[in-house]
Design a protein around this nucleic acid. Structure first.
Lengths: 204, 204, 204, 204
DNA sequence: TATGAATGAGACTTCATTCAT
DNA sequence: TATGAATGAAGTCTCATTCAT
């Protein structure tokens, strides 16, 4: 979806490379200072090129935020999708998916924070795009739950799958958002174990 | 805790009055445009006084954000605390508290969003303050859970109370953050009913 | 028509005063360097206030150009209108009007140059406004010519009045635009005398 | 006079070819958007070569403007010079020259506008060059007028020839500059007819 | 001779904050 | 206590020009 953003540069591969570099440069700054507090100048410096060069690959500062958000989401999404492919029973897949998702979040805590805190600085269109991507992710859990229902290992009304899927997502993100509270009492592993139990008890 | 913020004005009562007005003026603007996109000029206009007057009651723009965040949190917090006072059994109190908290969130959706999205624009000290207040709120649920454990209506390890309390908070906030997804399938009442079931099943 | 331009300042009189100062500051710079070569910083410096203050009275750089163009046109226009009020015969009024207009141009050569060279840098709306004002000026000559026709001192088809009026305007402006060629052979007075003769011979 | 402009390229013919292409590319852009609003990138794109290649044939953006102005002037000038060669009486030649010049202007209205509006963006030296070329053109009319005087068909002081010649030029250019006013009432032919009458009446 | 990515100075504009009244 | 004009630093973005390939 990066093709949406115009560029002065003709070499498509170079655009990809440089945009990756820009994302890398920006993400740390955004995490540390937030989008608004980070200046384009700083990003260019971190990027290692001139401001002019930076602006050859994007059109506005907001484009950078979009690239960053898109990157984060794609990373998380891809990792989760990989992990879900499996031949096991629904309930096993669900446990694994929860575990994998929570671990991914744990490994990308800063990025998750960034993703959810700066979304509102995006244009409506970009926000919508992220929103859709988020829903896709949620539907992964929804699908697993539906399989569980079919296998009769989970006894909830079909209508509730979306809600439970969202619960899982949110409980996962909580590990990033409330880390300062949880850290004292839980490792990521014990967090996963405990939360999985609570979730499963609720739906079995 | 507003005393933290310096003011040119001597009359304490006047400070309180004016600051309430400032919060009222700012909150809608922040909700609509976000903190950074809102200018002090706009706030002053909405406030109905001059920029100079506005700056007699605060020291920086960030102070306004803090006042707003504090106000929102206090509102929610007070409402919840009121509702919890009761003579019923722990489990009844828990159900009521969940219901009340979720309803409060429903009635203050925009404010909740604001509270969690703009927090990072606050200074470290202010952020800490909000953080502590948030924890206080969480501990309300924790205490109820502990009472339930004592009454043996809830069978979870004592250690888990904090986690479950946080889960409740987060599931509640989810109603504000994912409203676009949930709105189609749930009213606030059916949301409360279903989520309460899931939560309770997990811990009983 | 200055009311079209927005301003942060509430005091209407102050707006007028400051805008006059801005016009004075800008006009010399524009004459010397042209609109595009003049920076807002230079204008602010000449204006004697900060850039921020400058932007309290206008919204864009182009606004300054508009103010300048409007000012020039109004100045010329007013002077000409004053001079035309008279009790003499049409032909006398015509001679006087030509003379006055040419003298006004002579006294505002730089401004005339500016007016006609930078017009295309204005927005369409502003250009239209100047265009209309220019036509008003032309119609002054047209009206005089019509009076002459009525008095039978000028024998041209009614239809031609507009053309002749435009000729007079253009011949007058020529004194500003081709000054380097004409200066060697003509003073403004001999220029007026000779051109008036040529024009009158053409229409009598 | 293009030799004034330096070039990296050795092949003189290639320089000429490419510069003609550059002029063709630039002139439409300048007409449409003005010199300052047109970027070198746009010119290169229209030119059909890279920016580097473009800069092999010029040294600065201003050089392009000069090439364009020179081209326009040369075009007009050549066409007029062609048309003047004749064996007729002075007065006939004069009428023809006026007619031809006005027709040329009519056919190159946009270019005339460009020529006179962007001149001030040229360097002093380039401006001078255009200025001299303009004078040459004027002197064509001057010479014809002198011939008329010699033939006693025109009765004006010798000194006035330059003035009248300039009048003719300016009245011609007026067709381009005031086209929106004149268009309703005149075709180019009726414009020529009427203006020629007025001019001749003035000098006979 | 041709390419086009890269440079970097500088342009316009905004806005939190102050201070004379 | 209240006003609002003024400040000026800082922000985003553009674009003529260069240079390695």
């Amino acid at each position: 979806m990066q093709d949406t953003i115009e560029s002065n540069i003709k070499d498509k591969d170079l655009i990809d490379t440089r945009r990756r570099e820009i994302v890398n440069a920006a993400v740390e700054l955004f995490v540390r200072k937030g989008f608004h507090q980070t200046t384009v100048r700083e990003i260019a410096r971190e990027f290692g090129m001139s401001m002019g060069a930076l602006y050859d690959y994007i059109r506005t500062k907001e484009d950078i935020l979009f690239l960053v958000c898109d990157h984060i989401h794609t990373t998380v999404s891809n990792k989760l999708k990989e992990s879900v492919v499996s031949e096991k029973t629904g309930i096993e897949i669900l446990k694994n998916a929860i575990s994998d998702y929570f671990i991914i979040i744990n490994e990308n805590q800063d990025y998750m924070l960034l993703l959810y805190q700066e979304t509102k600085s995006l244009s409506k269109a970009a926000r919508k795009y992220i929103f859709v991507a988020e829903n896709e992710l949620t539907s992964i859990f929804e699908d697993i739950l539906k399989q569980c229902i079919k296998e009769k290992t989970v006894r909830i009304n079909h209508r509730k799958t979306k809600l439970v899927a969202n619960n899982i997502m949110v409980i996962g993100q909580m590990w990033a958002f409330r880390r300062w509270v949880l850290r004292d009492n839980y490792s990521i592993n014990s967090y996963i174990k405990t939360q999985t139990e609570l979730i499963l008890k609720g739906i079995i």
